[in-house]
Design a protein around this nucleic acid. Structure first.
Length: 593
RNA sequence: GGAGCCGUAGUUAAGUUGGUUAUAACGCCGGCCUGUCACGCCGGAGGGCGCGGGUUCGAGUCCCGUCGGCUCCGCCA
């Protein structure tokens, strides 16, 4: 181990270029690899900016060359040397610095390194668990460095845009009040108030609305949110939102301003020019044509409603569904009549996974329909269905018949799978769509009550307010989601700022005024003191970055992510704590059943 | 709460119908090598198969349980 002393870096490894030809440079970094030819020793030196080749030549610096034998992978070294053109024919076009090399005159080994458990390179073959345990090494890989640098650039871009557009970045409490609606809260015990708990915020929703009441006019925050729910590739218990709220606006103002934000982030971070305004779909259209409220608009294969055609048909399953108010939806898998039994079974299984009771199919072949259900339809009905889905010979048509809330998503998932299998999804490109006009409420059969689809402060559409009493399920909300490549990356709404409407909404949600006060009293108090019309949105930063970087999981854009059991494999969190800590908090662990 | 896939040297994997000292590659250690960049060549060390039971003369291979990783359903206003 040697000291830095008065050595200072003259440039980054990845920045060494022909501009520095014959100049002496001082470089510092990690040893990517050493190639010892007995005479010459080559060392690839790596830092954030890239890799440069060092050459140790026994004929030039015998002493330094001798010491270079001790160098191993991941050692941290400093060198002084001369930038030289590589000999003819030994250039390495794979490296940004591949035209030059540094002939080392002096060497300092600043830090030795234990043998790493896996090789630090983009296509390392180590499993994710071992990489997460040694995340500090994993994060040395250029691909993760690139992702996290991009994350920085996106955040910086968002801050610049929002600041330039009159938004003020403000912080809101992390120790806050538990609100029973929504996701499960993470709780934090209060030592000074035994038996009382803070909750970590699921989002700064209430606080940002209060900031509008306070007159800050436009607020934003790039902030951590916490939800104690099960994890997925696109869900971590702590995740980051770009949270925005604006005063004196309606939906179109928010959407236009946020399109500017998204466009700016993609321009600044990726150099991609997006076309604005983005495509729009109402919730009804999205679900009707794509089956899902997060439609993947990168390919066709749209769903078609054939309920009316099959209503009177001889196929009892379809007819019964139509009779009971359900829907029969169809999707034409163009040119897929050659699907095997196995492929059809796999898709049927997929339908079952999402609650579909079955997945009917029809192959359009020479001589008509090849299908288990062909015999139930007349030629007229067959022709009508074929016309509805524009089926031609060689096509394969799938049907899903069920309640609207089942048939659509089931076939929507089938559609997505078909898009994947048929390679209809472009590898590059960003397909944005706003989904608007969400319903205000959904009805929970089990609990016999309404739930807010968005949240209880979302404003109904003005023209639907009259239906709050008569037909609550038909009331649409001033809520909007933004979907990118079939994934929800953000959502927001215009908030209620009319006390009467707010009271009515609480009633519909089965909350008396007492209960509403108990849960949201501080917000309701605030809203009573002069509230500007306001609304906002929150973007899932991690998801946006995952799509930008082509990552399979948001773990690849988060420096220290957690596993599916919500464990940090590096730090070991969560862990047991001392009895003393529990005592101070007046807590006791009950043990699990 | 549930389903599926996976746990074998440091890493990634192979391991036939259960059968002597468990394979390979990369990595590691040592030696040789002056133009490599997945450097090359020679030699060597390293695990008892996630963990715990069971069946069997005999288990990495079969059974049960358990722990962990990943994907998904439920859940995520």
């Amino acid at each position: 181990m040697e000291r830095l002393d008065d050595w200072r870096r003259s440039c980054m490894c990845g920045e060494v270029s022909g501009d520095l030809m014959d100049k002496e440079v001082t470089l510092m970094g990690w040893v990517q690899r050493r190639r010892d030819h007995g005479g010459l020793i080559f060392v690839d030196l790596r830092d954030r900016e890239g890799i440069v080749q060092l050459v140790f030549n026994p004929e030039e610096q015998a002493e330094v060359h001798k010491r270079a034998h001790a160098i191993r992978n991941e050692y941290v070294v400093a060198v002084k040397g001369v930038v030289s053109k590589r000999p003819e024919g030994t250039e390495n076009p794979a490296l940004k610095t591949g035209g030059v090399e540094v002939r080392v005159r002096e060497l300092k080994i600043l830090s030795e390194a234990a043998v790493p458990p896996f090789i630090i390179e983009d296509d390392t073959d180590a499993g994710e668990d071992i990489r997460l345990r040694h995340r500090y090494l994993d994060l040395r890989r250029p691909v993760l460095q690139k992702n996290l640098v991009l994350r920085h650039r996106v955040c910086l871009s968002a801050r610049n845009y929002l600041s330039q557009n009159g938004f003020i970045e403000m912080e809101t409490p992390v120790l806050t009040k538990s609100t029973p609606e929504g996701a499960r809260d993470f709780l934090v015990p209060s030592r000074l108030n035994p038996g009382h708990f803070y909750a970590l915020p699921q989002s700064p929703q209430l606080f940002k609305q209060i900031l509008m009441v306070s007159g800050f006019d436009r607020y934003f925050q790039i902030t951590r949110c916490f939800r104690d729910e099960d994890l997925r590739a696109d869900r971590q218990p702590e995740f980051t939102q770009i949270d925005v709220e604006m005063s004196f606006v309606d939906r179109e103002d928010v959407i236009a301003c946020m399109e500017g934000l998204i466009a700016r982030m993609f321009k600044d971070a990726l150099g991609v020019e997006l076309e604005v305004p983005f495509e729009r779909l109402t919730h009804d259209e999205a679900v009707g044509r794509y089956g899902l409220d997060a439609p993947d608009t990168r390919f066709g294969l749209e769903l078609v409603d054939v309920t009316d055609i099959v209503r009177g048909a001889g196929f009892k399953v379809f007819a019964a569904v139509a009779e009971k108010g359900g829907v029969v939806k169809a999707v034409n898998a163009k040119g897929c009549a050659g699907f095997t039994r196995k492929e059809l079974d796999e898709l049927t299984e997929l339908a079952a996974l999402y609650g579909g009771k079955g997945l009917a199919w029809v192959k359009i072949v020479d001589g008509g329909w090849q299908s288990p259900i062909a015999k139930f339809f007349t030629d007229d009905e067959k022709r009508a269905i074929e016309a509805a889905v524009r089926a031609e010979k060689g096509d394969l048509v799938f049907f899903s018949a069920d309640r609207r809330e089942v048939a659509n998503p089931v076939l929507g998932r089938i559609r997505n799978e078909l898009g994947r299998r048929l390679n209809l999804i472009p590898k590059e490109g960003f397909s944005f769509v706003w989904v608007t006009d969400f319903p205000m409420f959904e009805y929970d059969e089990a609990e016999k009550r309404y739930y807010a689809v968005h949240h209880p402060f979302t404003s109904p559409m003005d023209e639907d307010i009259g239906k709050l009493d008569s037909a609550p399920l038909e009331v649409r909300a001033k809520a909007y989601d933004i979907v990118l490549n079939g994934e929800e990356i953000g959502g927001g709404s215009i908030r209620i700022h009319d006390q009467g409407v707010q009271t009515k909404i609480f009633e519909l949600l089965g909350m008396g005024s007492g209960e509403a006060r108990e849960k949201f009293g501080f917000l309701l108090d605030a809203l009573s003191f002069g509230t500007p019309p306001h609304g906002g949105i929150a973007f899932g930063l991690d998801r946006i970055l995952a799509i930008m970087t082509g990552s399979e999981s948001i773990r690849d854009v988060i420096a220290f992510p957690k596993t599916q059991k919500a464990v940090c494999m590096m730090s070991g969190a969560p862990s047991e704590v001392d009895r003393k800590q529990l005592d101070e908090l007046c807590l006791r662990v009950a043990g699990k059943g």
